[in-house]
Each structure stands twice: as structure tokens, then as C-alpha cells.
């Protein structure tokens, strides 16, 4: 049996975006989300057909590296996506889906496998598991291109704009890797949203303290032995 576990996931550069966006009221994002949903409904009728069986359900989508969350409400006639500042304002959603923002986008666009990020613990879910699985399967049945779809609204500019989006995406992704080294410095602002991270750090700190104690004890006993030996000679 081989162990393929990779190291913990890099904290996405969206973290920095999050820090920048922090003062931005969610209401300013809302029109963009409305447009995105309309485009998706138009381009992916099959997907929304599959979502029919989830009618009436609400999902809290919580990008752990952003200072706000999304609520996806699957109203039978007009499914809608809203942005909220505080997860507590989501009422009682059917289920909660948590993960780094870029990963959630990758999932939405089918670039990564939902089960894989669940196995790696980057994605966590709570609440009605069946609803989440249905949502995931529906999303994966379509071929969603969030960025592409939004840019296509710009008309004739879309090809160069697509290249721009790709370039931005690539830089973003490369930055993700480079930023690994400094991420710990920036963890604190989102620590409250990242319990797991906090616990890991606490554990490390506790272990370190224990090692320090052990070291001190060893040193003390060595010193003591030396003194006894000296006294005996």
C-alpha cells in the first residue's frame, strides 16, 4: 500500500483579495451574481433541469478564504445566488459547503473532482448530504465556464478577453504556489474561519512546548550528573 498524501493545501491568493475586499459591502457584488446566474440558466438548461429535484433547498457556499459567503437558493422558478457577510445570516440552509474559493470555482467548472477534494479534506460538507451530492452531480453534468460565460457578454472582445482571463487565471494559480511560504503570516485574519488551521497550529505549539520542557529536563539532569561526578572525584 502506498501513501500518496500531499502536504496541506496552499492558501489561495484569494486570501489577499479577501483582505482587499473586506470593506466592500456584499450588496455591491450582488448585480454581478445576478448576471452570472442568468447567463448560466441560459447556457445550461440541462443542469437546471437536474436541479429541479432540489427545488426549495438552500445551500450556504462558504469560501473559507473570503470574508463573505454565498447562499444558493433553488427556488423553482428563479434560482438565485446572494452574497452575505456573515454565515449566521444564512438562516437554516439545507447544507453547507466549505472550501477555498478558487477550488470552489474549479469544482464548478469541472476542473477538479469533488470526491478528490473531499478525500483530501479541502472540501467539507455539513447538513443534507444527499442534497449536496445531487447538486454536485447536476453541476458536473453540465460544462460550466463561469469566467468565459461572463466575458462572452462583452461581445466581440471576447477572444482577447478570454486570453486575458486565462493569463490572469494562470498568474493566480502560479502565485498560489509561490505564496505558500508567506501564507502563515496572513493566516490570522481568517483564522476564525479556519478552525482546522488553528487547531493544527495549537497542536504544533503544544508539541514544541513539550519538546522544550524535555530538553530542559535533559539538560538539568546532565548538569546534575556532571556535578555529582565532579563531587565524587
Amino acid at each position: 500500500m502506498t501513501d500518496n498524501r500531499h502536504s496541506s493545501p496552499p492558501l489561495s491568493p484569494v486570501l489577499f483579495a479577501g483582505l482587499v475586499l473586506r470593506p466592500l459591502p456584499p450588496s455591491l457584488l450582488q448585480p454581478l451574481l445576478g448576471v452570472a446566474m442568468n447567463v448560466m440558466r441560459e447556457r445550461q438548461p440541462g443542469l437546471f433541469e437536474r436541479l429541479d429535484e432540489l427545488a426549495g433547498n438552500a445551500f450556504l457556499i462558504d469560501p473559507v478564504d473570503l470574508p463573505f459567503c454565498f447562499v444558493l437558493k433553488l427556488d423553482p422558478r428563479t434560482p438565485n445566488l446572494t452574497c452575505i457577510r456573515d454565515a449566521a445570516d444564512a438562516g437554516t440552509p439545507t447544507a453547507v459547503v466549505r472550501g477555498p474559493f478558487l477550488m470552489l470555482i474549479d469544482l464548478l467548472e469541472g476542473r477538479i473532482d469533488g470526491d478528490a477534494v473531499f478525500f483530501s479534506r479541502d472540501l467539507t460538507i455539513e447538513g443534507d448530504t444527499e442534497a449536496v451530492v445531487t447538486l454536485r452531480n447536476a453541476i458536473d453534468s453540465g460544462e460550466i465556464r463561469v469566467v468565459e460565460d461572463l466575458l462572452s457578454l462583452l461581445g466581440p472582445l471576447s477572444a482577447p478577453a478570454q486570453r486575458l482571463a486565462d493569463a490572469v487565471g494562470a498568474v493566480f494559480r502560479r502565485a498560489t504556489a509561490d505564496l505558500e511560504a508567506v501564507r502563515s503570516a496572513f493566516v490570522s485574519p481568517v483564522r476564525d474561519k479556519s478552525d482546522a488551521q488553528a487547531v493544527r497550529i495549537r497542536k504544533l505549539e503544544a508539541e514544541l512546548a513539550e519538546m522544550r520542557d524535555d530538553l530542559r529536563r535533559l539538560k538539568n539532569s546532565a548538569r546534575h550528573r556532571k556535578q555529582t561526578e565532579l563531587a565524587e572525584t
Partner: peptide
Amino acid sequence: CDLGSVTEGQRNT
């Protein structure tokens, strides 16, 4: 090839 990330428990047998 690395298929580790898509395996359950990130392990294979």
C-alpha cells in the same frame, strides 16, 4: 503518472 489525488483516502492498493 500521479493518480494519488483522486484516490480514496489518498492511498491506493
